[in-house]
Design a protein around this nucleic acid. Structure first.
Length: 479
RNA sequence: CGGGGUGUAGUUCAUCGGCAGAACGCUCGCUUUGGGAGCGAGAAGCAGGAGGUUCAAUUCCUCUCACCCCGACCA
């Protein structure tokens, strides 16, 4: 912990110390014994489960079925697609020995599963009647990252990866866009994180893809975090894995494929974007504990009445499928309040002598401290309402911050000035020459994040080389 | 893989050649309880590992391993 004793570093003082402190103090996760690995503790895993719950439903709504493929992949599988192996080889974990012997062929611990899944697809797909074929797996993958960071970049991480095969590029592209839309919904409706969905540049796209789409979010320090990805793989993999089918006319044809994924990195974004000096702030949509009831009993209070109110409130909320707990530990109220703040519990319900006198309970929002004195009988509707309002307020706050920190740069000196001061997103014309992109990154540390969906072509000049440019791309320094 | 730093109690750190210290956490007891309660008692350590210098090494030297921070790679 960067900070001594029991308090966490203030978010305003040092974002990355705060981030690490809050993850450890709130018991979300800790470092594993192997560099870059992460132990996700029960409370952190509960956030992942809350995200999974809705996302899994959306994935199935896309027409996908869940399956599971092996984590060991023959090295030769990766070598089949040239860009794919080149892109991933620096970060592969390779198994050379097993069972006390050297293996005849090294095995790769999956960094992603395109190859092993499409090898199966080549056997599963025979006819146009087998298409489209869409599978999803929830799994772990390993990428040997040089600079790990809890949640944001770990050597092993959890994710879902969807893989789909289609008769036409149009149909495949449609699913690529639907998957991206599904992620936008997850980020905005569940995680309350605003961001830009768009297409990656050639140099930033997935190794082996024709086109990659992503969701880019802004963190409080002005750096961008790439969330999910959705790739149009064209026929790059079907060619090398021989994923063919017979058309209605009896011809042999290669399938068009896409893949898309969402990882535990998003939990890092969730923590960083919403939290404050007191700890986590979790949007109700993914908060493992949406409401915590804190009875305040003393020697002089009517503790039976307080206890009865607490039980009543608990029963009402639980009946609504609200994730609710009662803190009956013998810690002091002050400690419980601080603990609830640290854990990011969306709403706290205080019940003490003051409330008991009126037969009411006090509901306090974690994010803005707004407090409501409510009748236990009406608690259900009102808590639903307050949770919904909090959810939309958090998204609104995230959106406001992102828009306020999205600037247009017309000249390269302006661009540099922004990156040296406020950072954040910059919209700027770029000619789409990888050389300009590379030089901008070298000189400002900012890279292209995406070309936001719905960008209209217009006549501009490249911020770097002054040559004609059609689109304003989104730039930022990234995590 | 380059540059910098750190390894001592569960955790964060002091001690810097001479019997190993604190805070927080943990256990027990009593008193408490509206924003991190008080007092008392207690458990807790081969000082990352190996080698060297020395009468004596946690402390100095060498090697090694691990971790952290800064750069290139990345969901």
């Amino acid at each position: 912990m960067a900070n001594q004793g029991k308090y966490i570093t203030k978010k305003s003082e040092n974002l990355s110390d705060w981030y690490n402190d809050v993850i450890i103090a709130a018991k979300l996760a800790e470092h594993g014994p192997v560099r870059g690995t992460m132990i996700i503790r029960p409370y952190g895993y509960a956030i992942w489960e809350a995200i999974q719950k809705n996302l899994d439903t959306r994935i199935k709504d896309l027409g996908a079925e869940n399956a599971y493929f092996p984590m060991f992949i023959p090295y030769s599988f990766l070598e089949r697609e040239k860009d794919h192996v080149e892109g991933f080889s620096p970060e592969l974990a390779v198994v050379t020995h097993a069972g006390g012997e050297k293996l005849p062929e090294p095995l790769v611990v999956r960094p992603t599963s395109e190859t092993i899944i499409y090898d199966a697809f080549s056997r599963w797909i025979q006819s146009y009647r087998d298409l489209p074929l869409t599978v999803n797996q929830w799994s772990n993958v390993v990428r040997w990252e040089k600079r790990p960071y809890l949640f944001l970049r770990t050597t092993e991480f959890l994710w879902q990866e969807g893989h789909s095969a289609h008769k036409s590029n149009e149909e495949s592209q449609e699913l690529v866009e639907q998957a991206l839309k599904m992620y936008v919904e997850t980020y905005q409706d569940d995680l309350a994180l605003f961001g830009y969905a768009g297409r990656k540049s050639e140099s930033e796209k997935f190794a082996g893809a024709v086109a990659t789409y992503s969701y880019e979010m802004l963190m409080p320090d002005g750096k961008a975090l790439q969330g999910c990805t959705s790739h149009n793989l064209g026929q790059n993999f079907s060619k090398v894995f021989n994923v063919k089918y017979q058309t209605e006319k009896g011809q042999e044809d290669l399938v068009w494929q896409n893949s898309w994924g969402f990882t535990t990195r998003s939990i890092g974004g969730l923590i960083m974007a919403h939290g404050d000096d007191n700890g986590l702030i979790l949007p109700p949509g993914v908060a493992p504990i949406q409401v915590k009831i804190i009875p305040i009993v003393t020697k002089n209070s009517d503790n039976k009445e307080i206890e009865a109110l607490a039980q009543k409130a608990f029963a009402v909320l639980e009946g609504r499928d609200i994730r609710v707990r009662i803190d009956n530990s013998d810690a002091s109220p002050g400690w419980k309040f601080n603990q609830a703040d640290l854990e990011g519990v969306s709403l706290r319900v205080e019940i003490g002598a003051t409330e008991a006198k009126e037969g009411k309970v006090r509901v306090v929002r974690r994010d803005n401290k707004e407090s409501f004195l409510l009748n236990p009988q009406e608690l259900g509707d009102q808590v639903d309402e307050i949770l919904a309002k909090m959810q939309s307020d958090l998204l609104e706050r995230s959106k406001k911050f992102t828009l306020e920190n999205t600037r247009e740069a017309r000249t390269y000196p302006d661009f540099k000035e922004i990156m040296n001061t406020t950072k954040g997103f910059i919209k700027a014309f770029w000619c789409e020459d990888p050389h300009c992109e590379e030089m901008i990154k070298e000189e400002t540390k900012a890279s292209t994040r995406c070309l936001p969906l719905g960008s209209e072509p217009s006549e501009g000049v490249c911020i770097y080389c002054q040559k004609p440019a059609k689109f304003q791309w989104l730039f930022a320094q990234s995590y």
